[in-house]
Amino acid sequence: MISLIAALAVDRVIGMENAMPWNLPADLAWFKRNTLNKPVIMGRHTWESIGRPLPGRKNIILSSQPGTDDRVTWVKSVDEAIAACGDVPEIMVIGGGRVYEQFLPKAQKLYLTHIDAEVEGDTHFPDYEPDDWESVFSEFHDADAQNSHSYCFEILERR
């Protein structure tokens, strides 16, 4: 099963200049909980913004210009990325925008964090048809001392 995991502000903004323009430790914990011990696929820009392999996960970098870091697996196509994951129950696609666009048609599940923030962004989550998805989990949280904005975790499964 292919799943996408993303944090989205208003207007589906997911990033600005290779960074997330908010401070939500709870979302980072949600991300870790849902990706640990699963292969993660990301684009080169996302890889560069993280700066290191995510521990406890097979890191697969999709790029037309593969790098030389041998701590991760470099691939040039969506099919190659899927094959590099091996026989696993769930593959997690973690961004960025172009990689989400490439995998959305193949995805069966979306793990979304909806952030109540209007922020400037240069990267967006692809538009998706809500009628194609069923919400199977939703959990709202107010902003607090650690988390700069209110947010809602949601899991959607393709109908």
Rank of each mutant, 00 (worst) to 15 (best):
F137A: 10
C152N: 11
I60V: 14
F125M: 10
L110C: 06
S148W: 01
E118N: 15
A143I: 07
L156H: 06
L62T: 04
E139K: 08
K32L: 10
C152K: 12
G121S: 01
E17A: 06
D127W: 11
A19R: 04
A84L: 08
F31C: 01
P130C: 11
C85A: 10
S148I: 00
V10W: 02
G121V: 00
M16V: 15
D127R: 15
M92F: 15
E120G: 12
D79Q: 09
K106E: 11
I41K: 02
A117S: 09
S150M: 04
L112T: 01
E157S: 10
Q102C: 12
N23G: 14
C152M: 10
Y151H: 11
D132V: 13
A145W: 06
N59V: 15
N23S: 05
E101Q: 10
E101S: 08
A81I: 03
N23T: 08
A9C: 11
S150G: 06
M16T: 04
W133M: 03
G15A: 01
V78S: 12
E90C: 06
N147E: 05
F153R: 03
A83Y: 11
E129G: 15
F140N: 13
V88Q: 11
C85M: 08
K76V: 14
P25Q: 03
G86D: 06
P130R: 12
W47M: 15
Q146S: 08
N34R: 10
Q102F: 14
D122M: 01
P25E: 06
V10N: 06
I115V: 07
W22F: 10
I14C: 10
P53R: 13
H45K: 05
S64D: 08
I91S: 13
R159A: 11
H124T: 11
D131G: 04
A83G: 07
N37Q: 12
V119P: 09
P53M: 12
F31H: 00
M92H: 02
F103H: 01
T123Y: 00
D142M: 10
L36R: 13
G86E: 08
A19N: 15
Y111H: 02
D70Q: 11
P126D: 04
P25G: 05
I91R: 04
H141F: 06
D144S: 07
A9L: 07
A29H: 04
A84Q: 06
L4E: 02
V88P: 09
V13C: 05
E154N: 13
E80M: 08
F125A: 01
D127V: 13
M16R: 12
D142G: 09
P130L: 12
H124I: 09
Q146W: 08
A117Q: 10
C152L: 10
E101V: 07
V119S: 09
R57M: 02
V75S: 11
L156T: 03
D11V: 03
